[in-house]
Write a protein that binds this DNA or RNA. Sequence first.
DNA 1: TCAAAAGTGTTCTCCCTACACCCATGG
DNA 2: CCATGGGTGTAGGGAGAACACTTTTGA
Lengths: 230, 230
Amino acid sequence: MEDKRYCYKYPHPAVTSDCIIFGFDGTDLKVLLVQRGLEPYKGYWAFPGGFVKIDESAEDGAKRELKEETGLENVQIEQLHAYSAPNRDPRERVITIAYIALVRIQDVKGGDDAADARWFPVKDVPCLAFDHEMMLRDALRYLKEKIHFSPVGYDLLPEKFTMRELQTLYEAILGVSFDRRNFAKKMLHLDMLIPLDETVWRTPKRKANLYKFNAVKYNELKQRGFRLEF
Amino acid sequence: MEDKRYCYKYPHPAVTSDCIIFGFDGTDLKVLLVQRGLEPYKGYWAFPGGFVKIDESAEDGAKRELKEETGLENVQIEQLHAYSAPNRDPRERVITIAYIALVRIQDVKGGDDAADARWFPVKDVPCLAFDHEMMLRDALRYLKEKIHFSPVGYDLLPEKFTMRELQTLYEAILGVSFDRRNFAKKMLHLDMLIPLDETVWRTPKRKANLYKFNAVKYNELKQRGFRLEF
DNA sequence: TCAAAAGTGTTCTCCCTACACCCATGG
DNA sequence: CCATGGGTGTAGGGAGAACACTTTTGA
């Protein structure tokens, strides 16, 4: 009995929380995965996550596990979905609450606790453990919707970026391509971007203007509710 | 030990699922509540729901409890959010997965198992048990968003309805009022309504045309992704 | 001087908005 | 005949979509 001290009148499921972390490297949308060191699914890649402690919320648990497994801290996470199929974990009944976050990949790359955490392009993820492939599909669908209401670039791009980079991000998430001129016009019309006086050489051909997000305007728009059509 | 047979190495939370059921009576958006017969929160109103069994999904559990407590069956439910604050239930650690559904109130009114289940206008709900008031706020926010992508009238209105009833529903959910003529134009433009040759006397003044939803067109639109602006 | 990337403007169309008139009916 | 509710049409403005020219630079 030493190893089974927590007893209940009715059977209780275990509860875990997982984090689906997206980043953007200028070309591809990427997702952060960790390689499992234990059975089941040993050696498979999976989202960082783990068991929720009895005195922490699922969200706090997700953040704690994220830090433990990848070193990522101070990330704003958002609940995606709870997965509760009875046989999704071979060990015991496990219900998982999945969270999603967008981070600046370049702020994260260096100095990780976790050598076995890696970014994968979403177009080219390995086989995932458990039902994590379903989670990824759900997360990508969610992101596609969210992009219409929320300037996801604010979280995914570096502080300063070119119009081309912003467009590439939108195209990577939505899986479409836009007219360069109309895209810029639409974005500038929203009044959420601040053109900077700086330029950079992102291509060998010509320097490009840099922009940053106007957080004040964005919050105003969010209050009133807005939608970007694409 | 007789009453605590289920033992685990680590503490496990209990998991419940609750159903937030909306209906529309032609004037008000309403929500289905049951009165609690047991402590805690005895006598308070709450969403139908209860403990998830160890071999059923949270969704199946929600449907089972919904039927047991209100008699409602064959309802399509959609996951809203998982609530996991450590102290949300005074008895023990409980995580609740909330589901949401839209039903035709007039198909439900009669013949319930549950005498203590009642519809309340969302504008005038009593004090709710646990954190159910937060759930209701979240559900209403979700419904306001959903209405832009999904013809919620399809689930909430009777099969045949007048344009005025559809408009009243939209106004009740969004909390705004529309120009009668522009609303009708916009709705008819979407090509999701089938005008019927029937009329009814919904007011003593004049008869009104009836419409029904065109499920085929709706599914086409949903595939392609559409959005109603208001 | 040519190729590739970036910056910018015009036209057309469609949809949304605001708004007004007519018809049917019961009192 | 008048008040109420329902059905329909029009004019104007704004935003998106399609589309082309110019500039800058390295090779």
